[in-house]
């Protein structure tokens, strides 16, 4: 590994170095992974100590909503991955279409999430609510984590959407093109990370029983 990198740097750095940019992006993704990792550690510990109550609480969540959202995110990951191929082939309009679809799917995901949260809040299940306070402690912990983890994930979805919209502008004005698309790649990598986190959140919150 060292020798390959060493020869690469002999090119000097007046060149654009896409591989370096991508390396930076991957390192950033690791920090995101560990950020959620902290939450997963908390989840693991509380599920270990309050297993039965977690299962009880999970009954409140609609498995169908979760499944639909999973499919939506997987599909959005597909479209953004395909957009890389499209830009590599120099198909500008197809790229725009695919990234645009990703953004629309992200929005659908958020809409779904909004209704799900709304449903819960109307039912009196939200942090600090009188209904929740009187439930067993494992249930309080479960919903605490549910709101924090899906909330933080939704925040990442929103950030990802903004990033992808900016990328669409770059594609449109020609900043991103067949010969230079590392930014779109970086945006896509971020989007896939958002997807991966959901891949774990989904079974841990929706599929307990």
């Amino acid at each position: 590994m060292s020798s390959e990198v060493a020869t690469a740097t002999t090119q000097g750095h007046t060149h654009r170095d896409d591989a370096g940019t991508k390396l930076g992006m991957w390192l950033f993704l690791f920090t995101e992974l560990i950020l959620f990792g902290g939450l997963f550690i908390i989840y693991a510990v509380y599920r270990f100590s309050h297993g039965a109550e977690f299962e009880l609480a999970a009954n409140e969540l609609d498995r169908l909503v979760g499944t639909v959202n999973t499919i939506i995110l997987l599909t959005s990951s597909l479209t953004v991955a395909m957009s890389i191929t499209a830009i590599q082939e120099g198909k500008k309009n197809l790229t725009l279409l695919l990234v645009g679809m990703t953004v629309v799917l992200a929005f659908a995901f958020l809409l779904n999430k909004y209704f799900e949260w709304d449903h819960k809040i109307v039912a009196g299940i939200y942090p600090g609510s009188p209904d929740l306070i009187n439930k067993p402690q494992g249930v309080i912990l479960y919903f605490g984590l549910y709101y924090v983890m899906t909330g933080l994930h939704a925040l990442h979805v929103i950030i990802g959407m903004v990033v992808l919209v900016v990328m669409m502008f770059f594609v449109k004005n020609g900043t991103i093109h067949k010969g230079s698309f590392v930014r779109l790649e970086a945006g896509a990598l971020y989007w896939h990370l958002v997807d991966i986190i959901w891949i774990f959140l989904f079974p841990l919150f929706y599929l307990l029983h």
Partner: peptide, 27 residues
């Protein structure tokens, strides 16, 4: 990132009363 999320959680607990670490809520 671990300290980032941990400190953020303390702030969230203070703001919203979410049960994460607070022993009175099972934390």
């Amino acid at each position: 990132p671990i300290i980032g999320i941990t400190l953020l959680l303390v702030a969230i607990e203070r703001w919203f009363g979410v049960g994460i670490f607070d022993p009175s809520l099972g934390g």
